[in-house]
Design a protein around this nucleic acid. Structure first.
Lengths: 153, 153
DNA sequence: CAAATACTTGATTATTTAAGTCGGGTTTTT
DNA sequence: AAAAACCCGACTTAAATAATCAAGTATTTG
């Protein structure tokens, strides 16, 4: 599961929408500026998320986007699956995005068996983490940022 | 961490070498036939693994490849990192393959924080699984194959 | 009602990555 | 000396990524 730039933009956009969750709508431009995302590209991404039923929109001069459900009802796995496809590192273990492998016998493939464990570990986290968690974590980090990696003496 | 076809070929090849581990060497052609991998492509991959010190080779008419260390000393993480780069789903949390992100402040990015958890879960499995485990698991599966996914009534 | 604003939709493009392929070179054995 | 097998770099083709562009449609407000 490698997250593309597109996927990162989507999740960062959803975090902004999660923070502003309510009846009101947020403009693409606002998100774009706040998160440093090319506006035209974000436009495309949000429209895509709308087709997945993750966000909804209002057109016209007071238009914008908002979450289609409360933030705690939107697991990251749902977003990522829609945008990137399988969570699994190899297609031959994905249930939703299965792809045949070239190996002699899938049912006896030891690699497949290991990768299934990896898939399950990834899914466990991403199914249980929601946009609400992104919002919470953002608030925490605002008070107590992650320390940089290179603090080595 | 999406595993490319190249990466899958590598791990499947290493499984064969793991099963044959000993002083003797295995020909590319043998692996290629046994695992249904394009020979020319496998050649390239094994040569690459050699440069990483994971396998060693013997040239000439009785030539071939063998593991450069006992199978239980070769963690899958090492192989995958060499071939595919970061295990992490996003570059901004990788220690070995760090890449800057476009977000306003990495130290306050909630997405980064979640993805670090995913990375750790993946790494935990792949650091602790070795070529020897692939061999063991292959033997097990030979007696008791994974049942197919579509056994639904 | 008109103009401005903001989402809608499809098309286009440039760059990069993936998956192989090709050709010839070098080493070792028989 | 000839055959087998690894060595090594360059090349090719197809697909995916990361955008950008150009109009079009809906909605609000002066």
């Amino acid at each position: 599961m490698k997250l593309s730039v597109r996927g990162k933009y989507a999740l960062r956009g959803l975090t902004v929408l999660g923070e502003a969750y309510g009846p009101e709508v947020v403009r693409i431009q606002t998100i774009s500026e706040q998160q440093n995302i090319p506006k035209r590209f974000l436009e495309q991404i949000l429209f895509d998320l709308k087709s997945a039923g993750i966000v909804e929109s209002r057109r016209g001069v007071a238009g914008g986007y908002r979450l289609a459900a409360p933030p705690e009802k939107i697991p990251l796995a749902k977003v990522i699956r829609h945008l990137e496809g399988a969570l699994a590192p190899v297609g031959c273990i994905s249930e939703r995005f299965y792809e045949k492998c070239s190996c002699p016998d899938e049912l006896q493939c030891p690699l497949r068996s290991i990768m299934k464990e990896v898939r399950d570990a990834i899914a466990k986290i991403l199914e249980n983490t929601t946009v609400a968690d992104l919002v919470t974590r953002a608030a925490l980090l605002r008070q107590k940022p992650d320390r940089p990696v290179d603090f080595v003496i």
